[in-house]
């Protein structure tokens, strides 16, 4: 069984989407995991053909304005055109939200599910990760502990679903259009502290750019009050 792990972040390196795929990969057993990147607005024909050879596709991407980032949406349209529409390839999604509530990723997962319908793939379910903006700053602790624990648990369940559906076989997967319900989780870190940490982060970035904290609220020339 071959599983394509698709990083849909516009960032080639150091993305939270990449961290989530790495975490998932650690739980994927009995499957060959192949990594792909969709970082720009086109999915080349060769890449689309390679993805059609996989048994399962896992898309990991950041939530952009309540949906799928524009460049990835464009890639999905390319992949729909190139889809073989007959193999029963299963598709899973991991959406990383800057907001604390993972449920805010629900519409983005629905877009991916709707895409499956059009492209002839089988929707397998997804995970909406809340508080994902801070993943890089959150140390990985031993399993079952630390702020990333709820996310790891959800990814483990997703990995189990990916592997078990392979055992069940394609026909059964096609009979059950959605194999598992979407899971919505948040980091195990108090919401008010997450909010505070984000605010401190923006001020540090602003200072690093040579500005002052109050500049964060600047209304540029031409903008209204």
């Amino acid at each position: 069984m071959k599983t394509a792990l698709i990083n849909g972040s516009p960032k080639v390196k150091s993305s939270n989407s990449g961290i989530l795929l790495e975490d998932l990969k650690a739980y994927l057993v009995e499957t060959e995991a192949v990594e792909f990147g969709l970082h720009t607005g086109t999915a080349a024909k060769e890449k689309a053909e390679a993805l059609n050879q996989a048994d399962a596709l896992v898309f990991s991407f950041p939530l952009y304005v309540d949906g799928i980032p524009g460049h990835l949406l464009s890639c999905l349209a390319d992949l729909e055109e190139a889809s073989s529409k007959s193999k029963g390839i299963r598709v899973y999604g991991i959406v990383n939200c800057g907001f604390y509530e993972g449920i805010q990723a629900e519409p983005a997962l629905q877009v991916l599910q709707n895409w499956c319908e059009k492209a002839g793939y089988v929707w397998g379910g997804g995970v909406g990760v809340g508080g994902g903006g801070g993943l890089a700053q959150m140390p990985k602790t031993k399993s079952g502990h630390g702020p990333r624990e709820p996310i790891e648990k959800a990814l483990k369940a997703l990995a189990e679903a990916i592997c078990s559906e392979h055992v069940q076989g394609d026909q059964q997967a096609q009979d059950h259009q959605q194999i598992q319900e979407n899971q919505y989780v948040s980091v195990a870190f108090p919401r008010f502290l997450y909010k505070l940490a984000a605010q401190m982060g923006w001020r540090q970035m602003m200072k690093a750019s040579g500005g002052k904290a109050r500049d964060l609220g600047r209304r540029p020339e031409g903008g209204e009050d």
């Binding site: 952009y64 524009g70 949406l73």
Partner: peptide, 25 residues
């Protein structure tokens, strides 16, 4: 309509316009 979303062009314009809001939560 792309799978329930606006098109890649319209979405990219939206993605590029998050400065309408402030970064703080």
């Amino acid at each position: 309509c792309y799978y329930g979303s606006v098109s890649p062009f319209v979405k990219t314009v939206q993605d590029r316009a998050i400065s309408y809001i402030h970064p703080d939560f």
